[in-house]
Structure formats: C-alpha cells, structure tokens
Computed example of a mutant assay.
Amino acid sequence: MTILTTSEIMALIPNRYPIIYIDRVEALEPDKKIVATKLLTINESFMRGYQPDQPQMPNTLIIEALAQTASILILKSPAYAGKTAYLGAAKQVDFGRKARPGDQLQLTVTLIKTKSNMGVVQTSATVDGENVCTAELTFVVGPRDSQLEKNRG
C-alpha cells in the first residue's frame, strides 16, 4: 500500500531528478518509523556510469537514499513541519549484497532520539530481505531555503 507517492515525496524534500532516490513510501509512523522503496532499473544514470560491466547502485547513493527516507520521517513530524533535514553524519555503516537493476530496494528508518534540531536514526536497506546496508545517521533540521521554494514553482 502506497502512503506517499513520488509527487508527495517531492513536496517534502528538495531532491529532484536525477538525485531523488525514493519512489514511494509504504509505511509511516510519524516520530517513529518509515518504510520506503526505490525501484532500480538499468536506465538509472548511475547504473551506466558506475562499474558498467557489473551495474549496481553505488554505496554512497544507498546512503543518500536512506538519508532521503530519514528526511521524510523527520519532516512528517509536527515539530519539524515546513523545515529541511540535512545529513550530519553516518556511523556504523555496513554494506552487504549489491543493489542491482531489477531490485526493489526497501529502505527502513527508525527514529532513535531527537534533541532540539538534531537527531539520530537507525537505517537499513534490503533487497528481498537480504542486507544491502545498515547505518546510523545523524541529522540536523534547519529552515527551508526560500530560493528552493521559488524553484519548485
């Protein structure tokens, strides 16, 4: 069941093609947990440019997809509505299997703690239940950029 579509996601976070890495949100408990999906295809620009003989999603972009998912969770909180979330740090990062064309990357983020405008989330990316990446991400919430709002038009 889709909770948020791509259009609704783009209303929350500033990312746009080619750097938006979430296709839908399937579950959302504000201030607790979110589950989102990225559908990987061979047509992704990074699939053609990163290890072209063995197409896969680069690890840095998997972290970015997890950070975007975390941003949605954070910005759906009444305390941070109308703001922007920024990735501050990635700790305890562990990569497993590769994310390849045809995979559905499931992104799960659980809020661990918040304090003022900062917080920590535990994240995981999986394909068919197999670990692709786990990481603890720290975020900072700040005001939404007014120039960004103008560009969204």
Rank of each mutant, 00 (worst) to 15 (best):
Y80A: 08
L148V: 02
Q68D: 06
N131V: 09
Y50G: 00
Q122R: 13
I112C: 04
V109W: 05
L137A: 05
Q51A: 10
M57G: 07
I22D: 01
M10K: 15
I63C: 05
E29N: 10
G153V: 07
P55M: 01
I9V: 15
T5G: 05
N59W: 00
T69R: 08
K32T: 15
Q54K: 11
A81Q: 12
S77F: 10
A65R: 07
Q68A: 03
R144H: 13
S146W: 02
E8Y: 12
A81V: 15
P78M: 08
K98D: 09
T6R: 08
A36S: 12
Q106W: 08
T2R: 03
K32C: 14
T126Y: 04
N43E: 14
Q56P: 03
Y80D: 12
R16F: 05
R16L: 00
D23C: 10
Q106M: 14
T69N: 10
L28Q: 01
T60G: 15
D128Q: 14
D128T: 02
I112H: 11
T5R: 01
K33I: 01
A89D: 12
V140I: 14
N59D: 15
Q106E: 10
E26W: 05
R48H: 12
K115S: 15
E130P: 09
I72F: 06
G96T: 07
V132G: 08
L75P: 10
I19G: 00
E8H: 01
D31P: 10
E64W: 02
K83F: 12
V141H: 11
G153Y: 02
Y50F: 14
P30C: 12
